[in-house]
Design a protein around this nucleic acid. Structure first.
Lengths: 178, 178
DNA sequence: GGGCACATGTAAATCGTTACATGATTTC
DNA sequence: GAAATCATGTAACGATTTACATGTGCCC
């Protein structure tokens, strides 16, 4: 079990999410632009956290609802989380950018093709930006959302920069073909 | 074998690199900011490419140098590469940003800690930018480097945007603590 | 002789995704 | 009664990293 996965799940337990399902929802809603996880990672990680004493599990049976397993972070768990949060960030960045890879091999395609890729990417980025704007419009800017806002800002600003680069590069590629 | 890995190796074969070792070197020198690969992927991929008829292998024995295996892309290989280059880019982005994750859990650390992370990151970004500048200064701007330059520009502009965000966020975090 | 650059490769372990299995309740 | 949402989980597969094994030739 990669340690980061475990600590991130543990961290999410401090945000009000208590079940695997809720964790996955939070991931998809607020986290997906900087980290992704599947059920195949979440449920086993929760199990491990309980085994190690960093979280406790309780089964909740509500009438008129499916049974669910609530997880709560323990004191030891919180201490370990803080320890992880304090440690310096090592470059985990597993970057895979297919657009840049294909563009790198630009001499093997037509300029028209390269431009088409950039245009498609620009559209996707614009859509991403629109989503971010919508999210921002829908949250009340309270104390609890402070740190989330920083990560959202990151997403917005990087997408913006990517969009600008797309436009600029498109222009340069067209320019050179004349 | 993930198809992308194979096509990327095949693409690199068109850039003048002919051995696994050279491919790895190119990767580390020009590619590392948007895709990474280890020998454990490169050598098996080369083997597969030969098996599928997309590349040929020849063993070269030079006096006073270790034996090496040169790979050359075949006509079929080039045709398949072009086909891959033409296909639309699907979002492969496997983003893992530990800084954003830790910042997301900002309420679980001191503001001082959060700022420290941002400062450390800013330094790393500045170092990255310096490396990019140096690379740019050392290459002659000929036709062959055109597409590589675009990917380098991407790296520079995104790093720049990240740096700005670091600075801005640092300010906001400090501001709120007073 | 030590260290470095060149050069190739694999096995094991780890990590992560996908697809599947299951089943309750609610809404249309 | 169909579809959507809530809810949990795993097995198989695929991808990737890490560590190891091996050897040459050159320079100090």
């Amino acid at each position: 079990m990669k340690t980061e996965t475990k600590w991130i799940i543990l961290g999410i337990l401090t945000t009000g999410c208590q079940t695997g399902y809720e964790i996955k929802n939070l991931m998809d809603a607020s986290f997906q632009h900087f980290w992704k996880m599947s059920y195949g990672q979440i449920y086993p990680a929760l199990k491990v956290l309980v085994e190690e004493g960093y979280a406790t599990q309780s089964v909740v049976r509500t009438e008129g609802a499916p049974e669910k397993k609530q997880y709560t972070i323990t004191l030891t768990g919180r201490r370990m989380l803080h320890r992880w949060l304090e440690t310096p960030i090592h470059d985990t960045s597993v970057v895979k950018n297919e657009l840049l890879v294909k563009l790198f091999f630009g001499t093997e395609m037509t300029r028209h093709q390269a431009v088409a890729h950039l245009e498609e990417q620009a559209e996707l980025l614009q859509a991403k930006l629109d989503v971010y704007e919508q999210i921002e419009a829908n949250i009340c800017n309270n104390d609890e959302s402070e740190f989330w806002m920083y990560t959202l800002n990151y997403g917005k600003e990087i997408a913006q920069a990517e969009l600008l680069w797309c436009q600029k590069t498109k222009g340069e590629i067209k320019c050179k073909s004349e």
